[in-house]
Structures are given as C-alpha cells and as structure tokens.
Amino acid sequence: MRGQELIVSAMGEAALLCETERPLNDADQRRYWAMARAAEAWPGVLEAIPGVNNLLVVYDPAAASAAAVERALREAWTDAVYQASESRLIEVPVIYGGELGMDLHGLAAHAGLSPEEVVRIHSEAEYTVYAVGAVPGFPYMAGLDPRLAWARRDVPRLRLEAGSIIIGGVQAGIMPVTTPSGWHSLGWTPMPFFDAAASPPALLVPGDRVRFTVEELRL
C-alpha cells in the first residue's frame, strides 16, 4: 500500500489523525498542508486541521467510511504538492521588553546573551506558520534560532495579554487573545491576529511567513 510510513489512528468514530515517526521537519509540514487542502474537497470530509507535523481529518461517518478516508489520506501523502505561491510574508511590529515583554531579561540570562542580542536574533529570523490552533488565531511557528530556545514555564501565567510575542521550547508564537499561557513573552504588538467578526477570523494561516520588526526596545 502507498503512503505506508504515514501512521493513521482513529480519534473516535468520526476523525483520523495522521502523523509519522520522523523528526520534526519542514518538508513533511508542507505535505500536511497540501493534504489538508486536498482532503477538504473529498466527499464526507468536514474539516482538515493541520497540526505540527500532523493532520487531523474530521469526517461524517454516514457519508464516508474510515477505510476510504484512510486510503485517500495515504495517497495524498504521496501525491499532494504544496504550492509555495500560497505563502504570504507578514511583517509584525514589536515593542520588545517592558511590562508586556517581561521575560526578555530572563531569556537573555538563560541564553547567556544581552537583551539587545536576543532582540536582534529574534527579529532577524523568518518564521513559518506551521499550524493555527489551541486558541483562536494562535500560530505555531518554526524558525526560532536555537540559541533562543527555552522550555515552557513550569507553572503557566494565569494571564498573558493579547498581542504578546512569545516563545515556548523551540517554537515561536503570537498570542491573539488574552489567556493563560506557559510560554515566555519577549514583547508586544498592537497588530490584531483574531477578529470574530472578520472573514477569515484569523490573520495568519498555515504556510504564512512572519518577520518581526523592532518598533521600540524597552529595557
């Protein structure tokens, strides 16, 4: 059977999760985006939700069998091609440090760098939105310089402001809504990333690229 390396597991009677045992990588992520795009057009498929190197497909079991959806997913894993032209570059102005970037100094100390170097490294990189989820509009982004990787807080903060520019482990993110979070905040942007009244409601979609620009540095 084709697409043999893809691990497909049931998430209940109406969803299938696709993943592999390979290490996290960009090429696989592009395949999942392409599979998601393809799967949404299949009869009986209700939603295709890319995650970080995985894909969840929700279907109507009255309209499609699990076996048929699984077979189509394995074929798409082999055949689907992501069109790079779908990707946009979004520039995000950031006020680094200060009250809403309260972890900038902590990260600098953790990484053995100055706060200015942390800001330079963070704002020079280009990030790729792997997936959107957890909370409305939240982008899981790859592309963080490994020097800035920092494990999540043991105890999440009960309140992180909307617009917080954050990192968690090796991932980067932008928090679109005010919510509890275990990630570290380096700064804040006034740019809105979620609007329930807009269509689509989330500014970023998987495949988008993000650059941060230094609007201000508050030490």
Binding site: M11, G12, L17, E19, G51, N54, G133
Partner: peptide
Amino acid sequence: LLSHGILPGV
C-alpha cells in the same frame, strides 16, 4: 507528542 488537533471527548 507534537501539538495536534483534538476534539471533544478525547
């Protein structure tokens, strides 16, 4: 595990 979509009932 890497972050992945989840559904009510998981």
